[in-house]
Amino acid sequence: MYEYVMAPEQDVVISSRVRLSRNYEDLPFSPKLTQEYAEEVIERTTEAVFNTENGAAFTFLRMADLEEDARSRLVEHHLISYDLLKFVNRSAAMISSAGTVTVMLNEEDHIRFQGLLPGLQLERSAEMALKLDEAVGEKYPFAFDHQWGFLAASPANTGTGMRASVILHLPALAASGQMGAVMQTIAKLGLTVRGLYGDGSEARGNLYQLSNQATLGRSEEDVIRALSAATGQVVEHERNMREQAEKKDMLQLQDGLMRSWGELMYARLMNVGEFMKRYSDIRYAASMGYLHAPLPALDALMMDVQPGSIGVRAGKLMSPRESEILRAKTLREELKKLVAE
């Protein structure tokens, strides 16, 4: 028997993430970063991070040492950014054992500190990233200017260097056709919303990412507070729409959502596109109590059957058809375990 901890607002918020861009003041930035300097970034940062209180919890990975599927798996689990793979020859990552803290090295900036937690926990995610940032910055000073804040390779990140974001599951809002209005309201607040996969209007799995746009002129706390408040409003909106859908015709809602459960339990071939639709349905059903499957487990499974992750599970290169077979098989087995509890 497993134990699952529900994080705050997890019926709608899948995860909260905060990233901080930092550069060492005496080393050249990305466009001028030679292999030698990149090594210096790795040496300094690993030394500083391993020597922090929880330093022993970190695993160091050079991107060049990983197979393609293993790299994709890290992106799919949000442990590293896709951009880190743009610089495979020099980039590396330090990942905490719980996966909640990551240090990306030699991406667009020398360092990207990341805090990642389930549900709506932006403050704690920021705390974790900032704590590590302080520890490293104390040993080796970061590029900083009193007018412009922390200097990033791209001026778009200069200031706090902080990008905070939440991943939201919005099936009822999307079905109601109100996403356009929600997106407009959010844009007015200086925040960006976009589909997590696929383009804005047709988000795969009804997953949306909400994040801050500007990094200069507002404090970290202000930004976190504004994003948390906006997220709270979207959460309320989504819950209202779910309630309304249930009131309108509960049986029809259940019928539509639970059919996806049937598909997942018996399908023999499953591509990612179809899976994301079914996942959205069963997550929705679970949040309404129609299906007794823990949300954290559904989210973990969702990441585990993404293309790179399923490849890692196979431990070998697969054809697209082999991937679909293994994805369908994995889903049947894992979902059966979930409801058996």
């Binding site: 900032l130 302080e134 910055g137 104390e138 000073p141 970061f142 900083f144 200017d145 009193h146 007018q147 412009w148 804040g149 922390f150 001026p155 778009a156 200031g159 706090t160 902080m162 500007a214 990094t215 200069l216 002129g217 507002r218 404090s219 970290e220 202000d222």
Partner: peptide, 14 residues
Amino acid sequence: VHGNTQHAGRVPGG
């Protein structure tokens, strides 16, 4: 880009 040119966040050392 930011609608601002004055940093209002943390300074090194927290």
